[in-house]
């Protein structure tokens, strides 16, 4: 009798996701859910969903969930973790949610060394609202609010969030990963799992930025989107560990 060597984690519900075909949100959901399950921490987990494409994440992560106002997930997560310190708390946020309206929240949570995990899914665009420019939209990248391509003279420069957060003394672990190929997906899983382990051991802030895709709003197919990410995002958003206090000891 053949044995299944890869099955869907129980930390994901049976609800089919609403994400567009090929949207990398689905991959990141799996990496987070698997990490929690493998660490045996599902019963302690409280996730905080953002406003954005992942606003429905509470339907997919099979644990207690809260839905934060746009940009406020790190604050909501702080409220949960400070009042229930024995829970494992994570936020799941898009680049618009975290780096634009929620910029003060994430920077302050990092400065406080909040003992939570924050996952930034960076696809360089606002997805749910239909493809507007985000803080991480690249120079020259077309969006519905940068129709002639992002112009730094008008809209400034794309934000390297991981490098920014790594400057905080309170940041414990900051890494940027990507999910464009199998090797990077496995690397992303390792980083996400490590973030949860660090939180479990009483450390924070743990921050993982996952470079992701948005086929629909980039106007390309799912596979072309992965290639676009490789050719455009990877050069500007360098992968790798930006800070790891544990590793330094």
């Amino acid at each position: 009798m053949s044995k299944a060597i890869f099955t869907k984690t129980k930390m994901l519900t049976d609800t089919p996701t609403h994400y567009c075909p090929g949207c990398a949100h689905g991959i990141v959901h799996r990496l987070i859910a698997e990490s929690i399950e493998e660490l045996g921490l599902s019963h302690k987990t409280v996730g905080v969903a953002p406003v954005g494409c992942a606003v429905f994440a509470y339907r997919y992560f099979n644990c207690d969930m809260q839905l934060a106002c746009h940009g406020r997930a790190p604050a909501v997560a702080t409220g949960v973790k400070r009042s229930r310190p024995d829970t494992l708390v994570f936020t799941y946020q898009g680049d618009g949610d975290l780096a634009s309206i929620g910029n003060a929240e994430i920077n302050s949570a990092a400065a406080r060394g909040e003992k939570i995990c924050v996952f930034l899914i960076n696809n360089a665009i606002y997805g749910m609202t239909g493809g507007q420019m985000a803080p991480t939209t690249l120079i020259g990248q077309i969006s519905t609010t940068s129709p002639n391509g992002r112009n730094p003279e008008v809209n400034g420069y794309p934000m390297r969030v991981s490098e920014m957060l790594a400057t905080h003394e309170g940041a414990y672990y900051v890494e940027r990963v990507a999910v464009n190929n199998t090797r990077n997906i496995l690397g992303a899983k390792k980083a996400i799992k490590k973030a949860f382990e660090y939180q479990q051991n009483g450390h924070g802030l743990n921050f993982i930025e996952v470079l992701s895709t948005c086929p629909t709003n980039w106007g390309v197919s799912a596979t072309e989107a992965m290639t676009w990410m490789e050719e455009n995002m990877l050069p500007y958003y360098q992968l790798g560990v930006k800070k790891d206090k544990e590793a330094r000891q």
């Binding site: 409280v46 934060a68 406020r72 604050a75 702080t78 409220g79 949960v80 009042s83 929240e105 302050s108």
Partner: peptide, 15 residues
């Protein structure tokens, strides 16, 4: 803004 959302998180955690 952050404060009321921290309150929201803690209230949602039942304290």
């Amino acid at each position: 803004v952050a404060a009321i959302n921290m309150v929201f998180g803690a209230a949602g955690a039942g304290v």
